[in-house]
C-alpha cells in the first residue's frame, strides 16, 4: 500500500472542497471496499478524507419519503424499525449482502459506490478497461461466469466492460425508485436511481454519474405501497457471504388479487441495477398468477445475451424473477 495523507475535516463543505480540488484525494467512510482496492494497488489516493464523523447519520421521516443519511451503517438500516415497517425490501436486500461484520462497518453511501468484484479488475496482472482504460477486457474472452447478460451490445467493444455491479442495496433502491442526494462544490443535486449508475460504453472506468468531489449525503425513498408484497431473492454459490449470481428485487401493490403497480429490478446481471420496465408494464393491471409472472419474466429477458460461462444466467434469471414475484405476492 502506498503511503497517504489522512485528513478529517469537520464540515461537509470542507470535505467536499478537499476532494473537489484534488483529483488524488478520495472520501473514506466504512472503507470495506476502498481498503481492499488500496491493498491491491487499484486505488492509490494520496489523500484520504475521512467523512465518518460528518452529520449524515440520520434516518428521518419527511413529507412523503424516508431520508437515510449516507453514513448510516448497513446494519442500522437493516434493523431500523421504520425501515422494516415502511420499506422492508431494503432490509431484505441489505441482509442478503456481505456479512454481519461488514454490514457493521459499511455505510449506505459506500455501499452504492462499491466497485465491481470482477477478478480481472482486482488483479493487476490482467488487462481491465475499468482499471486501465484501453488495456482490454480480461473477462470478455476469459472467465465470465459472474458477468453481465444485460446492457451488453451484440458485439461487445473490446474497450468496454462486462462486469456487474455487486450491491444488493442498490437493486432494492432502484426498484423503489429512490433518489440519491449529492453535494458538490457547485451545490446540491438529486439523482434518480435510474440515472445514478451508468452502462460502461466507452468509459467503463466511470461507474456512476457523480462528478469528482461530489459527496453522497443521503438517499430518499418515496413512501410507497410496497410494504406487504415485497421480496428480495438472491441466488448465490453459498448460503451466505457471496455475491449474487442473479438477484431480484420484487415489489407489488396488490388490490383484491390484482396488481396495481409492480416494480422489478435485478442484480448480478448488468453494470448497474437492471430495472425490468417491460415486465413491470406487463404485470400492471393483471390478476396475480404464476402464468402472468412467467410471461413477465420472459419479457424481462428480452435482449439478454450470454458469454462463454454465464449462459446459465439466462435460465436462472427468469426462474428467479418468477420465484421472487411469487414470494412477494404470497403465492406458494
Amino acid at each position: 500500500m502506498k503511503a497517504f495523507e489522512y485528513v478529517r475535516p469537520s464540515t461537509i463543505r470542507e470535505a467536499i472542497e478537499l476532494v473537489a480540488t484534488n483529483p488524488k484525494a478520495q472520501f473514506i467512510a466504512g472503507g470495506t471496499n476502498l481498503i481492499d482496492l488500496m491493498k491491491h494497488g487499484i486505488a492509490a489516493p494520496e489523500k484520504l478524507v475521512d467523512i465518518n464523523h460528518l452529520p449524515l447519520k440520520k434516518i428521518e421521516k419527511r413529507d412523503d419519503f424516508l431520508r437515510i443519511g449516507a453514513l448510516v451503517l448497513n446494519s442500522e438500516v437493516a434493523s431500523h424499525k421504520r425501515v422494516l415497517a415502511s420499506h422492508p425490501l431494503l432490509a431484505q436486500a441489505l441482509n442478503a449482502g456481505a456479512s454481519g461484520q461488514l454490514r457493521n462497518m459499511a455505510t449506505v453511501g459506500g455501499n452504492l459506490l462499491q466497485r465491481t468484484r470482477c477478478p480481472y479488475f482486482y488483479d493487476r496482472a490482467f488487462p481491465c478497461n475499468k482499471r486501465i482504460p484501453g488495456s482490454g477486457c480480461g473477462a470478455l474472452g476469459g472467465i465470465n461466469r459472474m458477468h453481465a447478460i444485460f446492457g451488453v451490445p451484440e458485439k461487445p467493444d473490446p474497450k468496454s466492460c462486462i462486469a456487474v455491479h455487486p450491491s444488493d442495496l442498490s437493486v432494492a433502491l432502484s426498484a423503489l425508485e429512490a433518489t440519491v442526494l449529492v453535494q458538490g462544490h457547485r451545490g446540491e443535486r438529486q439523482i434518480p436511481m435510474a440515472d445514478f449508475y451508468r452502462l460502461p460504453n466507452n468509459r467503463p472506468e466511470q461507474d456512476t454519474t457523480l462528478s469528482n468531489g461530489e459527496l453522497i449525503t443521503a438517499v430518499e425513498i418515496p413512501d410507497a405501497v410496497f410494504q406487504k408484497h415485497v421480496h428480495y431473492l438472491k441466488v448465490r454459490d453459498r448460503a451466505s457471504y457471496a455475491f449474487a449470481l442473479v438477484s431480484v428485487a420484487a415489489a407489488l401493490d396488490i388490490d383484491q388479487n390484482r396488481i396495481k403497480t409492480a416494480r422489478l429490478s435485478m442484480g448480478g446481471v448488468a453494470h448497474k441495477p437492471w430495472r425490468l420496465f417491460d415486465a413491470e408494464k406487463m404485470l400492471t393491471g393483471q390478476a396475480v398468477s404464476e402464468t402472468v409472472f412467467r410471461q413477465a419474466a420472459e419479457a424481462a429477458m428480452q435482449g439478454a445475451r450470454a458469454f462463454e460461462h454465464n449462459a446459465y444466467k439466462l435460465r436462472v434469471a427468469p426462474n428467479a424473477i418468477v420465484q421472487a414475484l411469487k414470494l412477494a405476492a404470497g403465492l406458494s
Binding site: 477478478p119 488483479d123 472467465i143
Partner: peptide, 13 residues
C-alpha cells in the same frame, strides 16, 4: 482468477 475468499468459496456457517 479466484485468488481471494470472495471468489474461492469455502463453506460459511
Amino acid at each position: 482468477v479466484t485468488s481471494d475468499f470472495a471468489s474461492y468459496h469455502i463453506p460459511v456457517h
